[in-house]
Design a protein around this nucleic acid. Structure first.
Lengths: 239, 239
DNA sequence: TAGTGGTCTAGACCACACT
DNA sequence: GTGTGGTCTAGACCACTAT
């Protein structure tokens, strides 16, 4: 192994290998910080830096007054990266802006979810996502309308949802909640996706909140069954 | 604010508030470690502990030789927690074991994905997930068969997929990859889910790997359109 | 050359868990 | 009480960035 690694990193890596090889099993206690310090000839603060890496990676759990214990990686926690959202062929998407318009229909369900007063207005932004020549998904974004916060064409066409919200809203977006479900295509949706009505479709809804839990924007994507899928993976860990 | 917090935590929290209130904007440099040390009357190592919290939370990015800079939370990275996989009514699932059997049909696509020799055997485990009185999803798990690693009834019925794999395989499972797609129900699947054939369904496929990238197990869930959805949220952060 | 973060030391005192 | 991890100090030297 390369000698350029800091000592604490090396320590963490060694223990990681012991866990992955099965030498250290789930629930086993790793040596105490003092013991590890002697073993590697380093001070306790440096040992703790290594321990921190393992804790971050989810490979150990430390309990005050008791010790640090091996836990297997949490394979039930998966990360979705929407930035490289995945066409079925793996390629990137092209975007086509369909429309940008103002809405003030307070019977609209998104209008209500954004918690707006009847006088308020909502911006509705619609895009089509292409993979190759075929349309893969319809994307609709709803945001509170703010005066003096123009939306640039380039943002409309290329930016992703959290970025558009960050640029257009005063409050800082701090949380995104997503729900994935399944539905069938309406005739209009099927038309846009160049397919038949009543086909199955994946529906991805996102709501972005400020620190005060005020919903700043809502996004809804309707995805063609054969041209879109979601990928997720468990934590990679930096060791 | 409570006085029980360690100083480094307080420091990180203060900066977090500045970011969320907009006082510190994306790209801004936060004070240097030395400055923060003087400001709080603490040593540099303690400052660095606070900085580490902010880095973990994804609120800042530190660059050697330059400084630490504010970045807004990555709202495109979402975490799915499959453990509390979500019935549409939000409630927990009950499980019903359908069958456990040995397969050695090497034309089976899962058999091939597990990278097995023709002589090898595969365990196929099928469960039904209920929310309330209605079946929500069909779950099929494929694993390499290992002699001398019995599967306990309780595991079969209650454990989730990564746990079953961890218990039954010799290698330590270290990675889980998931793909979510959409399909229609076969007549048999519709029968099990007590609904009509050709209905849309969400399909969740998981593959669990060892450290050598050997696939240890494959899981495929076919979920009823109205009785199942996936939830995900951006990183909560521990501040 | 000056300023910044990255690594590391050799201590200290505290809070918590066990017995 | 002993053993453990949690917090914190007051330094040191290094590597990288900028000017």
């Amino acid at each position: 192994m390369r000698k350029l690694m800091p000592v604490y990193y090396r320590l963490a890596y060694d223990i990681k290998l012991d866990i992955e090889s099965g030498k250290l099993k789930q629930g086993d206690m790793i040596p105490t910080e003092e013991q590890l310090g002697e073993l590697y000839g380093i001070s306790r603060m440096t040992v703790r830096q290594g321990i921190a890496l393992l804790t971050e990676a989810g490979l150990i759990e430390t309990v005050k007054g008791k010790g640090s214990f091996v836990q297997l990686p949490k394979l039930n926690q998966l990360i979705i990266n929407l930035r490289n959202a995945s066409a079925s062929d793996g390629g990137p998407f092209r975007y086509k802006l369909l429309s940008v318009r103002m809405v003030h229909d307070n019977s609209n369900s998104y209008f209500q979810q954004l918690g707006l007063a009847p006088a308020d207005k909502v911006i509705l932004l619609r895009r089509l996502l292409y993979s190759g020549d075929m349309p893969s998904a319809i994307e609709e974004k709803y945001m509170r309308y703010l005066r003096g916060k123009p939306l640039l064409e380039t943002q409309l066409e290329y930016a992703d949802f959290p970025e558009v919200v960050a640029k257009h809203q005063d409050s800082v977006p701090v949380r995104n909640e997503m729900v994935v479900s399944v539905d069938t295509l309406s005739p209009e949706q099927a038309d846009l996706l160049e397919t038949e009505p009543h086909q199955p479709a994946m529906v991805i809804k996102q709501v972005i909140y400020s620190k005060d839990d005020v919903p700043l924007g809502i996004s809804r994507m309707v995805c063609h069954k054969d041209r879109f899928h979601l990928n997720a993976t468990s934590f990679p860990g930096k060791l």
